[in-house]
């Protein structure tokens, strides 16, 4: 034990200290899942925004929530991006680092539940097998729809899967439904004609439920608020840029995801909407007030607690902080 701890720690010290310590104050370090919804943060880099603000961006992909929380805990990153629902997930308690300071996109068709041809209504799912990765947004959609039909997740047979296996899982005739996200959602429909799949539930029908938020590490937020102001300004500038020139935006975003610009455009068109500064303000409110995100937060919290994805009821007033958003453009050009 001692041998490898020592030597590995030595290695870590060598590798990290040199680069990180020097640049820590002027580098915005972000972890986010491999999702095109977060592209504005990356495209802003190509637009030279961070540089102009006096910062550099260090953006890495990380799909695993546990890893992001570990990195946050250690102080290795300044911000992460995720849906509200996942933000609330276990093991978050009020003291866990991470405060919501802005939004970046909402899911509009990007998440959903696929069913085979035999299912025409949510109530048909009772007693059937539903495959889903535990904490993805599609689970919330399913949970809400079941609740509306007077059912709950306990009435279906849940199977845990990895979302990337969506199509292979749905090919199994014993599976009646799969909760998933794009591009698997639309590809499954064409890939498995004999199962006659159909999108039963889509985030398109609940546009406010699945909101991607930007979270700041509390210590850094207190010590260095300018960093987060720069991050938000750059994100919303990139969203504005998308509004003006979506084609160019897709071109700039594509290489980060190993996609072609056409594929990026398609994902954006079918799945999501970027939130502008004004929309973000509508979600978070300003000047210490509240916005619609506070209601979404409560609603999603309830669903998460029911399912057991979260075990502490968090207070949106504590988790959401709109001070960075307030007066974001004061004295600067948008």
């Amino acid at each position: 034990m001692r041998f490898w701890k020592v030597s590995a720690a030595g290695l870590a010290a060598g590798a990290c200290l040199a680069g990180a310590a020097l640049a820590q104050d002027t580098t915005i370090r972000v972890l986010a899942p491999t999702w095109v919804g977060f592209a504005p943060a990356l495209v802003a880099q190509d637009l030279g925004c961070y540089e102009a603000e006096g910062y550099a961006l260090d953006f890495r992909f990380e799909d695993d929530r546990a890893n992001v929380m570990a990195a946050m805990e250690r102080g290795d990153i300044d911000a992460d991006m995720r849906t509200v629902g996942e933000h609330q997930g276990r093991p978050r308690v009020p003291e866990t680092p991470g405060t919501i300071i802005g939004t970046i996109d909402i899911s509009v068709g990007g998440d959903g539940v696929l069913v085979d041809g035999s299912i025409s209504d949510v109530s048909d799912l009772a007693g059937r097998t539903v495959a889903i990765e535990p904490n993805i947004p599609a689970r919330l959609l399913l949970q809400m729809a079941l609740a509306e039909a007077g059912l709950s997740l306990d009435d279906v047979q849940l199977r845990e899967i990895a979302t990337a296996d969506t199509i292979a899982v749905l090919a199994d005739p014993s599976v009646a439904a799969v909760g998933t996200y794009e591009p698997f959602l639309s590809q499954a429909v064409t890939a498995l004609p004999d199962r006659n799949p159909r999108i039963l539930l889509s985030s398109r029908d609940k546009p406010d439920l699945i909101v991607d938020i930007i979270t700041a590490r509390d210590d850094e937020l207190a010590a260095n608020p300018g960093k987060f102001r720069a991050l938000l300004r750059c994100v919303y500038r990139a969203v504005d840029f998308f509004g003006q020139d979506p084609a160019r935006f897709a071109e700039l975003a594509a290489p980060y995801y190993g996609l072609t610009p056409a594929e990026v455009t398609e994902i954006i068109d079918t799945s999501l909407a970027y939130t502008t500064y004004e929309e973000a303000v509508a979600y978070l409110g300003t000047g210490g007030g509240t916005g619609k995100l506070h209601d979404v937060f409560r609603q999603v919290m309830q669903l998460n607690l029911e399912y057991g994805a979260a075990d502490t009821a968090l207070d949106p007033g504590q988790e959401i902080d709109n001070t960075i958003l307030t007066g974001l453009w004061d004295g600067v050009e948008r």
Partner: peptide
Amino acid sequence: LVPLSIIWFGVGESTKIF
């Protein structure tokens, strides 16, 4: 062990090497 190694070594090269 990945989250643990992130706690120890951060999200840089060292975690990957570790």
